[in-house]
Simulated scan of single mutants.
Amino acid sequence: MSTMWGLTARGICEFNDKILLLKIRSKSAHDAGKWEIPGGKVKKCEFFDEALKREYLEETGLDIDIVSLYNVVRNDYTACKTSEEVKSIQLIMKVTCESDEVNISREHDDYGWFTIDEVNQMIENGLLTPPAVNAFKK
């Protein structure tokens, strides 16, 4: 079976020196109850910046501006529906928003704005998804 390659775009949004993270719903098949960086899969024929803005709006209700590339990480996983092995390249972008009024979707149970020290503490305590942990490693 051939390997599938996927592209995911995520955005580290800072507002008042705090970073936005979303808590994956407890019923999720992957990383339930862990915290992640907002974002998602880039669809076929979609520009990754448009995908990131779309996913951010869906997951947080926020309109974002993309500032710069922050990091690139690889996350390999098995697709739930097809059981195919997927190698996912994750583009981690620095993004900005005009507000900290978040409106989460049903994909997440909670959200929070955290200082970088708090994020590092959460990483030490195993509360972030593996790709999120790698994203913050420079």
Score class of each variant (00 low, 15 high):
residue 60 T to G: 09
residue 124 E to I: 15
residue 48 F to N: 03
residue 115 T to S: 08
residue 90 Q to C: 02
residue 11 G to R: 04
residue 6 G to K: 08
residue 109 D to H: 13
residue 77 Y to P: 06
residue 67 V to N: 12
residue 50 E to Q: 08
residue 12 I to E: 07
residue 26 S to P: 08
residue 103 N to F: 02
residue 1 M to K: 00
residue 122 M to W: 04
residue 90 Q to N: 06
residue 118 E to C: 11
residue 96 T to D: 08
residue 41 K to Y: 00
residue 96 T to N: 05
residue 10 R to M: 13
residue 73 V to E: 07
residue 2 S to K: 02
residue 39 G to S: 04
residue 84 E to K: 03
residue 7 L to N: 04
residue 98 E to H: 09
residue 3 T to S: 06
residue 90 Q to E: 08
residue 61 G to H: 06
residue 45 C to L: 07
residue 123 I to E: 05
residue 93 M to R: 03
residue 122 M to T: 15
residue 41 K to E: 01
residue 57 L to E: 09
residue 118 E to K: 09
residue 108 H to R: 11
residue 49 D to T: 06
residue 3 T to P: 10
residue 67 V to D: 15
residue 129 T to P: 06
residue 121 Q to S: 10
residue 67 V to R: 12
residue 9 A to I: 09
residue 78 T to W: 13
residue 65 D to G: 11
residue 62 L to Q: 09
residue 99 S to H: 14
residue 24 I to N: 09
residue 55 E to C: 11
residue 57 L to K: 12
residue 109 D to P: 06
residue 101 E to P: 13
residue 107 E to C: 12
residue 104 I to V: 04
residue 124 E to G: 12
residue 4 M to K: 11
residue 55 E to K: 14
residue 7 L to E: 07
residue 62 L to G: 04
residue 20 L to V: 13
residue 70 Y to C: 15
residue 92 I to D: 00
residue 132 A to M: 05
residue 106 R to E: 12
residue 126 G to P: 15
residue 71 N to A: 10
residue 52 L to E: 02
residue 39 G to M: 02
residue 44 K to I: 07
residue 92 I to C: 01
residue 16 N to P: 15
residue 133 V to M: 00
residue 1 M to S: 03
residue 65 D to F: 07
residue 94 K to F: 10
residue 112 G to M: 13
residue 7 L to G: 02
residue 69 L to Q: 14
residue 20 L to N: 03
residue 8 T to G: 04
residue 76 D to R: 14
residue 2 S to N: 03
residue 110 D to H: 10
residue 11 G to E: 05
residue 93 M to G: 05
residue 2 S to E: 03
residue 74 R to H: 14
residue 76 D to E: 12
residue 3 T to G: 10
residue 133 V to S: 00
residue 92 I to H: 01
residue 76 D to F: 13
residue 129 T to W: 03
residue 9 A to Y: 05
residue 33 G to Y: 03
residue 59 E to G: 08
residue 98 E to A: 06
residue 126 G to A: 09
residue 103 N to V: 10
residue 12 I to L: 13
residue 96 T to A: 06
residue 71 N to K: 12
residue 40 G to Y: 01
residue 86 V to A: 00
residue 37 I to T: 04
residue 16 N to I: 14
residue 66 I to W: 11
residue 48 F to A: 01
residue 115 T to V: 15
residue 114 F to L: 12
residue 127 L to S: 12
residue 118 E to S: 08
residue 133 V to N: 01
residue 46 E to C: 01
residue 15 F to A: 10
residue 127 L to W: 00
residue 91 L to R: 01
residue 77 Y to I: 12
residue 43 K to P: 00
residue 127 L to Y: 00
residue 51 A to Q: 03
residue 15 F to H: 10
residue 51 A to V: 02
residue 33 G to N: 06
residue 118 E to G: 04
residue 10 R to S: 08
residue 26 S to K: 15
residue 106 R to I: 07
residue 56 Y to R: 09
residue 138 K to D: 05
residue 3 T to L: 09
residue 42 V to L: 01
residue 95 V to H: 00
residue 60 T to N: 14
residue 84 E to M: 07
residue 31 D to L: 06
